[in-house]
Structures are given as C-alpha cells and as structure tokens.
Computed example of a mutant assay.
Amino acid sequence: MTYSTLDVRPRADRLVVAMNRPEVRNAIDDRMVAELHQLCGELEREPKILILTGTRLDGRGIFASGADIGQLKERSRDDALRGINSAIFNRIAALPMPVIAALDGWALGGGAELALAADFRIATRHLKFGQPETGLGIIAAAGGLWRLKEIVGPTVAKEILLAGRILDAGEALDLHLVSEVVEDPDGLIDAADALADRIAEQDPLAVRLSKQLFDMPASAHPAIDNITQAICFESEQKHARMQAFLDRRNNK
C-alpha cells in the first residue's frame, strides 16, 4: 500500500508509522484521515502492534499540531455530525493489538486526541500537550472531552479543556498521561520498541482478548471474562506456554 502523509515501516510483529506532513507541523487533514483508515484496515486484517509517532522539522520534534485549521474552518454542521476525526481515532483505539504513541514536541488538539486513543504513550522531555479548541470556537469533539478526564481526572482535564493549560513532559508523567519520558529524542522509538518487545513476548490471542475486554462495562463482568477464558483454555498457546513454565520450574 502507498501512503503520502504517513511513513510506514513494517516489521514482523509491528508497524512503525510516522505522520509525515512536517511543513504544516503534521496537521491532520482529510488525506491523512483517509490514510489512517487505510492503515487500520491493514492492521484489522493482519493484527500487529502499532507504534505511531511524528516527524522532525528543523531539528525539533512534532507529533501533530492538531487538525488542519484551513480545512476545519470550512467544515459545516453536517461535517461535524459525520465525526470525521472521532471516527478514525475510535477505530485506532479499537485496533486488535496495542497502539503505542511516541510523542515528541507538540501534541495539540486533534494530535492530543490521537495520542489519547493509543493504549500507551511515551514522550520526550520536549512534549507539549494541550487541547486549544475552545480558543478557536470549537470543542475537543474527537475524544478529548471524555478520554482526557478518564486519564488525568476531571480537575486537570477542565484546566486543559476550558482554560488552555499546556502540559509539559514532567506534568504528563506525574498525571500518568504518559508512562515514560525519554531524555534523548533519538531514543524515543527505541523506548517504544522496548515496550512493544514486552508486548510481543505475550500470547497474541491473550493480548487481543484482554484489550477487547478492558473497556467493557462492569455489568459484562464476570460472565464475559469466563467465556473469554474458556477460549484461552482451549488454545494451543495456553498449553505450550504453561508446559514451558512447568519445565523451567522443574529444571531449577
């Protein structure tokens, strides 16, 4: 598959994808949305871990500066009701295998909401994270209004959403918005790869099912857990991995 706004680097168990519109600070336009849908289709057909990152401009990192304001300005009520960005971010969040957002520099507006759709976020010390939508006369309608609150809590979320607060890397780490801060930007993808390596060591089926069940409503548990565990109990990987564990223990 060919991409013009994404730099896609496939590996055996993962895709490393860099948004690649540095001339507009990786603003998310209709073309990028279409290519992200294309990417999701590929990962839905052949599940792999996704590492999503940005690019550099004049030596400085940029994850994504937000939606393309030139296009956003021209969007109408009907465009809003289509949920152009929320639909793709929800699709990314629902991918079968985990998504890791590797954040360097600005992650604003739609860029922040894209990062929130990931399962994990790793950042450099240059991270600047915010939701400036209300300053532009709109709301953070692609996930920011609800995903942010779930992660950082309502008080800080309101400061970001209603008062324009921008978080730096240290604040994001303290608030568990990111799980790791990398001092050297050149080590960002290495850190994301290290996390992906740990995920790849697990049974892919168990990882996929655990991700699917994670956001289920409380009323679905424990019944859905029991049914899913029944699937796992019959898998070849369960027997092989448990036998390997017993063999290692018995050989000590």
Rank of each mutant, 00 (worst) to 15 (best):
V178T: 05
R121W: 06
G41P: 03
R77M: 14
R249H: 10
N85P: 04
I189Y: 02
A192P: 07
A172G: 08
K48F: 00
I28A: 00
R75P: 00
T155C: 04
G59T: 06
I231Q: 09
L177H: 01
L72Y: 04
H37E: 13
L136C: 07
A80R: 09
L175Q: 06
T53F: 02
A140N: 09
A142S: 14
V24E: 02
S235M: 07
A141C: 10
A27S: 14
D168K: 04
F120L: 06
Q38P: 01
D29N: 15
D119I: 05
K238T: 10
L114C: 10
A230F: 11
I122A: 00
P10V: 04
Q202F: 11
T5V: 02
L195V: 08
I100G: 04
E171P: 01
K73E: 12
E23S: 13
A141E: 12
A191Q: 06
R147I: 07
R45I: 06
H176S: 11
V8T: 04
V17S: 04
M1V: 13
A12P: 05
D104P: 03
R31E: 14
K238R: 13
Q243D: 13
F233G: 09
I100P: 02
D186N: 13
E42P: 05
D215F: 15
L177P: 02
L145P: 00
S4V: 09
E133I: 03
Y3I: 00
Q212A: 15
R165E: 08
L161M: 08
D29S: 07
K48M: 05
L116D: 01
A163S: 15
D186W: 08
A169H: 01
S219T: 15
E171A: 12
A192K: 03
E183G: 09
D193A: 08
K252V: 11
T53Y: 00
D13S: 14
L36F: 03
I160N: 00
D174K: 12
A172K: 02
I51C: 05
D30C: 08
R198K: 12
R147H: 10
A223Q: 15
G111T: 00
A157C: 07
A200M: 06
A64Y: 04
E23K: 09
N26S: 08
R31N: 10
R147K: 10
K252H: 14
